[in-house]
Every structure is written in structure tokens, then in C-alpha cells.
Design a protein around this nucleic acid. Structure first.
Lengths: 247, 247
DNA sequence: GTTAAATAGCGTATGCCATACGCGAAGGGG
DNA sequence: CCCCTTCGCGTATGGCATACGCTATTTAAC
């Protein structure tokens, strides 16, 4: 699914409010907030079962007990609703914790918080954010994170690039992690059973001699968890940031 | 789009061949190879215009001048076709170049090759690879890359994690880059014009005092290109790998 | 108190999509 | 030469987002 053809102006207007309540006319039975909340509920459930793509306007409307088309009185389309959902689940980094934390500790906390967000809302890493839109909560989160990081003396642009690269890493690994859990839950086939089932095909490939290095790998070479991959990438990134910044 | 509900056994069978040609019966007018090639052609074009989601079985069939349902004689479904497309465009790292290249140079070359792949086939980074499947070409690429990297003395598992994290980085940035180019081409609105149009809304937010740090950022703080972000992340990752590995 | 304007709810229709099913066509092996 | 297998693919089903217009509901204005 993607936030592809959305009208960005409309999304921004919705995100940043400014909605007026004219006294005249039939009063609305719903609200933007209720719709976004319901959409997130449905997405949270579907992402663990049918997958995020199963999120439909109909499903959201049914959750609210209204007709599908009623949603369109509040939201121009599904893409804009996705924008609202994305901003709504963003959480702001804790400002508690000593003021003397270094950038590495702060970034680690932010990464872990983002990781948790991806597990709490398992659809999140599947939304195509290829043209990210800043809503109020995202803006607040970024503002607070930058506020925490600025004392490090790292220039703002570098901070933004660090955050961007780190978030991409978290979401990439979370995407695979969430998908594995979903497939296991849905099919009842664990990852190990899955690979075992494919062993004959792959075994033949290994024995062909075309892949000498692959054939030579120890059986447990691939036995690392997504949590381990998350931690590995994060640690490497931070080491790399340190080399760049603390010189 | 996602490679979501695919039958992985079928995909593997198709990827690894073993197709038989029974002499009996009407001879096929198409071939798996032609279908995959046509699908890639269509996807290459659509990814720059309508977007990858516009890739449909009908569009592929039309390109081949056949009926939509004829494709299903060769491929169980769209998901499996995507698996074949993914494997088909994978290219194998050059083995040329001195044997004395260090791991960093080798990984850099692989990253740049992957980046080029994402630009040559702009749908590639949008395919959901949350449960990656190894076809013959992917397997070959991984085999050769590991062969080049093994002399570094880094253990195999670490090498795999490094490659995984690096590929995720490349694809994440490429996804945004490709999308930006597509939107600009389609709407005729450049990114700068886009932000300029949203300036009033964001200006108001800045003036609210809720985002003091964001408001304090220099105007050019966000002025970095995706190429720069690609290089930044890659350099940081490699520095981090070095800290981990060369101790 | 009545009416008209404004707005919400939403049924229906359109045009996409993937794909299941079955029929008729086209070859080769016997 | 015929039958059996396989292929091409039209049609049908059920999903999706969403445009349009009718009806219901409210309040402001008279």
C-alpha cells in the first residue's frame, strides 16, 4: 500500500486542523479523530492477520457502524487517511532522563522507541513513506529529538541525515520481523519449517557446484534473529556516526 | 505492492526450473522467460509514470499481445511473477578488479551496483521483500559477493548482516529518490515548488512557538539530495563496520 | 412557527483489479 | 486418422476506491 496519489495540500490542511463548525446544517455523527482512531484499530488487527493491504475503507466504516461513503465526508480519500494515521501514532521522545545523555544514548532510545512503534502498529513499516509528510506529532517528535541532540554540537543537517538513516534501518528490519510473525501466525508454519520444506530444492542447487561459497556456509550461518539484526545495524550505524562526529 | 500471499513452493519451483516439455498437446505460444521480460519492461515504464502499483496482469498480457488469462498457464499468480522478476533483474557483482581489494571497497561497489539496479528498475525498491526468496541469480550474486569478502577474515554471519543492512539502506533511499522523480515528472511540480506551496501552513506552525527547534533551523538544513543521503549512510555504515571488524 | 440553506449519511454505479472455471482449438503419439 | 493432452482465453465473481446525487437532518432567517 502506498500514500501515493494523495493530495498533499488536503492532507496538510487536515493534519494541521483549521476545521470549522458552521452552525448550519446537519451535525456530523462522526469526527476525524474517531475515524483515524478506528482506522488504526482495524489496521492493528489486520496487520497481524490478513496483512496491511487488507485495510479497506469498508472495513473502517464497518468498525464505526456507518456506511462506507460516509467516511468521505471527513477525508478526501484513503491516502490522506493514511497520512493522518501515520502522524497519529507517532510518539514524541521522552524528555525525561538526565540532560547529560550523549547523542548516542539519545539516538538509541529513539531507535528503540521507533522499533516499539513498529511492533505496536505492525502496519506502520508497510506504509510507503517515500514522500514523507510532516504532521503536528511528527513535527513535535522531530523538534524534541533535535532539541535533545543539539547540545552534542553536531550540525543540524548531519543530525537529520543520522535520524533518517536510522529510521530507515529500524523500519526495514521491523518490516521483515512483522511479516515473519504474521506469516507464522497465519499459516502455522514456522520459519524453520518453511526452510526445511524448501531444503530439497536448495540442496540440489548447492550440490550443483554453482554456488561453492553458499554450499560451504555452516548450517547456522543464517540463524540470527531480527532483533539481533536490529541491534547489529544500530550499533554499526552509531559507531559510524561516532567516527564521523567525535573524530 | 507486496509479494504477500504467494505460494513459496511454487515460486521456488519456477525459479529453479525443472520445467518439462511434454511432447503431447498444443505447444505453448509463450514462455516463462518472455513473460518475465515483458513484465519487467512494463514495470520499468510504469514505475516512472503511474507508479509500480499500476502494474497489472492485463498490462503485461497486452504488451505480449495475448489474453490476460493466458499468463496463468505459465505462472500461478502475480506474486510468483514478482518473485521471478526480482530474481531476474539481480545482477552478479563484477569479479574483475584486483583480488587485493579490501572489504570496504567491495561493499562499496556492491552498494553502488544495487543503487544503479534500483534506478534502472525503479519498481524494484517498492516490491515488498519482507520475506526474501533466493532465486538462482540472487543466489549467484550472494555467492560471488561472499567469495570476494571472505578473504577479509570476517565471519560469514557478520558478512551476511552487513550485506543485509547495507541493502536495506540502499533500497530505502532509492525508494524516496525514485518516488520524488516520478512525482515531479508526473505532476510537473518540483520538490522545491511543492514545499513552497506548503510554506504558509508550515509557517503558521513554526510561528506557533510549539516547535522552537524546527523554527530555528536554517532554511537550507533540509537541502541535501538523496545521493548525498545515500553516500552519507553508506560511509557511516562502513565506518561502523570498520570499528567492529578491524578493531 | 415556518421555511430555506447548508450539511451529513449513504445507496448505487463505475471502472479498476486478481483470478477461478470451463470451453473450444491445436498439435503429437498411437 | 483420431484421441488425448495441453494451451488460449472469454466470461464470471468478488473485491476495491470512489464519483454522484438523493434524502434526511439541522439551524438561521424571516
Amino acid at each position: 500500500m502506498t500514500t501515493d496519489e494523495r493530495d498533499l495540500g488536503r492532507s496538510l490542511k487536515l493534519l494541521w486542523g483549521g476545521r470549522t463548525r458552521p452552525g448550519r446544517g446537519r451535525p456530523p455523527a462522526l469526527s476525524l479523530e474517531r475515524i483515524v482512531a478506528a482506522a488504526i484499530e482495524v489496521a492493528d488487527e489486520l496487520a497481524l492477520t490478513e496483512g496491511f493491504e487488507a485495510l479497506s475503507m469498508r472495513a473502517i466504516a464497518q468498525r464505526l457502524g456507518v456506511g462506507t461513503m460516509s467516511l468521505y465526508r471527513y477525508v478526501p480519500g484513503k491516502s490522506e487517511l493514511l497520512d493522518l494515521m501515520l502522524d497519529h501514532v507517532m510518539d514524541v521522545p521522552d524528555e525525561t532522563g538526565g540532560p547529560d545523555r550523549g547523542w548516542r544514548e539519545i539516538l538509541s532510545a529513539a531507535a528503540r522507541q521507533h522499533w516499539r512503534l513498529c511492533l505496536d502498529h505492525p502496519w506502520y513499516p508497510f506504509v510507503d513513506q517515500s514522500r514523507p509528510l510532516l504532521g503536528p506529532r511528527s513535527m513535535l517528535g522531530l523538534d524534541r529529538l533535535l532539541a535533545l541532540l543539539r547540545p552534542s554540537g553536531i550540525d543540524d543537517r548531519t543530525l537529520l541525515m543520522m535520524i533518517s538513516v536510522q529510521n530507515d534501518h529500524v523500519e526495514s528490519v521491523a518490516r521483515r520481523y512483522v511479516n515473519e510473525r504474521r506469516v507464522e501466525r497465519r499459516t502455522g508454519v514456522t520459519t524453520e519449517e518453511f526452510w526445511a520444506a524448501q531444503a530439497p530444492t536448495l540442496e540440489k542447487a548447492m550440490n550443483s557446484g554453482d554456488y561453492p561459497v553458499m554450499a560451504d556456509l555452516a548450517d547456522d550461518t543464517f540463524d540470527f534473529s531480527y532483533e539481533q539484526l536490529f541491534e547489529f545495524g544500530l550499533a554499526r550505524l552509531h559507531d559510524g556516526f561516532a567516527a564521523h562526529v567525535d573524530l
